Simulated scan of single mutants.
Amino acid sequence: MSAIPVVIDIRPTIGALFCGVIAASVFYGVTILQTIFYFQTYPNDKTFLRIMVLVVWALDTLDLLLVVNGLWTWSIANFANPLALLELPWSIKTEPVVTATISTTVQLFMAYRIRTSGYFLSSATSMYTDDRTAFLKVNQRLTPIAAIVGVVTFFSWALGLYATIHGFTTGGSVEDVDQALRWADIGANVSAAALDVTITITLCLQLYFSNQGFETFPR
């Protein structure tokens, strides 16, 4: 009696990860172009800005390498070994905290811009005392929003750190880990989306209400 072959459909798991890696690689290429464009276009920016851009690019590179390593471990190094699909590679366990660090770095910078943009706008229109005073008042009103963004950002980073620690310290299959961390995943995604919307709306409103000052900006 011949053995019945075991057929495992990996399209919803490894297949989805494979498609995700392809998409991430495309966007990573865009990130490289943006990084090169930034350093060529703004060579006189402050040192901390240039360092932050390099840090974000390096973290983005590391994030992609971690996901590629996880895909390699599952599909190449453990080819025809379905039991390997039950365990998370170390790279996949590390990836949440790296992703959270990228988001935290960018969102903290945007919170800084919300807090200081009123100052920059008022400096550009410093010849008009009324405009400068109005911008400074806007800047003061936006300080609580910047503070809230900073607090929620660290909350999202803490969830990413927790997911990584949980992955390394708790055993179980991929499904078990996914079930255990679903609440953290949902919380991190919801808070990140809420922050992105808040930051975008706040910056757009700042630009909208300061449109009178654009006439005096240096070309």
Rank of each mutant, 00 (worst) to 15 (best):
T153K: 08
N189A: 15
F39T: 07
W57A: 02
S2A: 03
G187M: 11
P89G: 02
G160D: 03
Y28E: 03
L86F: 05
A111Y: 13
V98T: 11
W183N: 10
D185M: 12
G15V: 12
S2W: 03
I4E: 15
M127A: 13
V53W: 01
A124P: 05
C204G: 08
R182K: 11
L195P: 14
V30K: 04
T169S: 09
G150N: 11
R115N: 13
T31Y: 03
G213K: 06
S156C: 14
W90S: 13
T169C: 04
P218T: 13
S126P: 00
S122C: 04
I201D: 10
Y112E: 03
V97T: 04
V7I: 08
G187R: 10
A192M: 02
L86Q: 06
T41H: 11
L49M: 13
N189K: 03
G172Y: 10
F120N: 02
F168Q: 05
V177W: 15
T198A: 08
V190G: 12
V174E: 15
Q179F: 11
G160N: 02
V55T: 09
I22R: 11
I145H: 06
T200K: 13
S117E: 11
I148R: 02
T153Q: 01
F135N: 12
D130E: 05
F217P: 02
S191T: 13
I114F: 12
T61H: 01
V6A: 08
A146I: 14
V21D: 05
V68G: 06
A193V: 11
I165A: 00
S156I: 06
Q107P: 00
D196H: 06
I186M: 11
A158H: 13
N69D: 00
R182Y: 06
W183F: 12
Y208T: 01
V68C: 14
S75D: 08
S191H: 06
V151S: 00
T129L: 03
V106A: 12
L136F: 05
T73K: 10
G29Q: 02
S210A: 09
S117L: 10
F168G: 06
F214A: 03
S103D: 08
I14Q: 08
F155N: 06
E95D: 08
V56S: 12
